[in-house]
Simulated assay, not measured.
Amino acid sequence: MRLKDKIALVTGAASGFGEGIAKRFAQEGAKILVADIQDEAGRRVASEIGEAATFVHCDVTREADWKAAVQEAIDQFGHLDIVVNNAGYSHYNQPLLDVDEAEFDRVYAVNVKSLYLSAQVVVPVFRAQEGGCFLNIASTAGVRPRPGLSWYNSSKFAAIGITKSMAVELAPEKIRVCALNPVAGETPLLERFMGEDTPEKRAAFKGTIPLGRLSTPTDIANAALFLCSDEAEFLTGVCLEVDGGRCI
């Protein structure tokens, strides 16, 4: 029960890493706001968690949706302790000049602008409570980029920079900001990272990971649990690779 009585808002929680984080946090005693644009899948996750979870429709690129989600947390549970910025998006693996402007804008809106909006809406709440925790799901792409993913890579470099910048600015107010850098995993974005989902492509990706496999939602959820728990109360600005050795 490492998150007993904590209230956590997890974006992109209808699938993949976000689903794994939401369910793991609930197992450890947290109440969960399952936030996603996929209504049916989000409601499924909340239903599987049970009474400890509430689904909220949230497009992380819209400030109004952020305000509504945070207000739902306060209305339902009285406060908000943890925000996991997990929602992410990638263009397909392809030459950098082949990614059109609309796709570039979408990558940056979901992966970068969402962090700005979460800060705008959540930091005042955390300040009023005299503390809180952000966890941003960045990527090994922001540490050791792969070819064919230039604009996605750069958005994750931005996420890591935002994490460290927010951490140093907000530390005096007892607001912690950390990040996880997962290696490619079994999520809906995997096909986009690889360009195509074939046994050969999977083998090539696994071949770059010393421990010899892709990441799983459980891997990411367990690391997220530690960084969002009181056990990590002296950690801020940490951007932890969960990558099977990929970034060594």
Rank of each mutant, 00 (worst) to 15 (best):
I7H: 07
L80R: 09
K6C: 02
A128P: 14
R144H: 14
G245S: 11
V177G: 04
F126T: 03
V125F: 01
Y89H: 15
G18C: 01
V143E: 07
L240N: 03
V56L: 09
A8F: 06
D100T: 08
G16I: 05
A35L: 02
E130Q: 14
E48V: 05
H91Q: 14
L189C: 00
H91A: 13
F77E: 00
P182C: 02
L117M: 12
A109Q: 13
M1I: 13
A171C: 01
A22S: 12
I160E: 01
L3C: 00
V177R: 05
D98Q: 11
S15A: 08
V45A: 00
G29C: 04
D197T: 12
H57G: 13
E173N: 10
G42H: 06
S155E: 02
F17R: 10
S114A: 06
F234N: 13
R144G: 02
P124Q: 00
K201L: 02
Y92M: 06
S118H: 09
E169W: 12
A8S: 10
I162C: 11
F134N: 05
M194Q: 11
A203M: 10
E173K: 07
A159M: 15
S215L: 08
R246W: 15
G195S: 03
V60P: 15
D230Q: 05
V10M: 06
I220C: 05
V242G: 00
F157V: 14
A128N: 14
R127T: 12
T187I: 04
V83Y: 06
C247H: 15
G29V: 04
G245Q: 11
V56F: 10
A69S: 12
H79V: 07
G42S: 00
D81E: 07
P217K: 01
E51N: 08
S155I: 09
L149K: 05
F134A: 00
F126A: 03
C239R: 11
V107L: 05
F157I: 12
T218L: 14
G29M: 05
A102I: 11
V45K: 01
A26D: 00
E196S: 09
A73K: 09
G142Y: 01
E51I: 06
E72I: 15
S155D: 02
V168G: 00
C247T: 15
G207S: 13
N222L: 09
C58D: 02
P172Q: 01
E186L: 11
T198W: 07
D98K: 13
F17E: 03
A184W: 08
R176N: 06
V177S: 05
L149W: 01
N181Q: 11
E196Y: 01
A68Y: 10
L115T: 05
V125L: 02
I160C: 04
E103C: 06
L97M: 14
G132Q: 02
L190K: 11
V107T: 14
P145W: 06
T11V: 06
D100A: 03
Q38G: 13
V143D: 14
E63G: 03
E233L: 05
V34P: 12
A179T: 07
D36C: 03
D219E: 09
Q71W: 11
G18W: 12
G132W: 09
L240F: 06
V168W: 11
P210R: 08
P145K: 12
K206S: 03
G161M: 10
F126K: 12
N153F: 04
